[in-house]
């Protein structure tokens, strides 16, 4: 269940989310899927650089940094804090 408009770009620092759908039209987004950003993956927003862009995510223990313009293409359902 994709929650209204939540994407990787809207996750708060320290918040986790599970990817629900990916907007695959952009070839650059397809390359990000090769790195493991696919439906079902749990992603945590770990940090961001000054100004909030790019953002750093944790994906199964490894750090990956994305620009906001790309993070927006991944719809997520946020995992409630404390899970």
């Amino acid at each position: 269940m994709a929650i209204n408009g939540s994407t990787l770009a809207t996750l708060k620092r320290g918040q986790k989310g599970i990817i629900q759908s990916v907007d695959v039209a952009d070839p650059q987004v397809q390359r990000l899927m090769v790195l493991g950003l696919v439906e079902g993956a749990e992603v945590e927003h770990a940090s961001s650089a000054i100004g909030g862009d790019p953002m750093e995510f944790r994906l199964f223990g490894c750090g990956i940094s994305l620009r906001q313009e790309h993070a927006r293409h991944f719809k997520v359902s946020p995992v409630a804090v404390g899970d």
Binding site: V22, Q30, M33, V34, V38
Partner: peptide, 20 residues
């Protein structure tokens, strides 16, 4: 209509998650 690269990633990473 699905980009093949996207399908490739979806299927193989689903297998990876099971193994993990």
């Amino acid at each position: 209509l699905e980009p093949p690269i996207a399908r490739d990633a979806r299927i193989r990473y689903a297998w990876v998650r099971d193994v993990l």
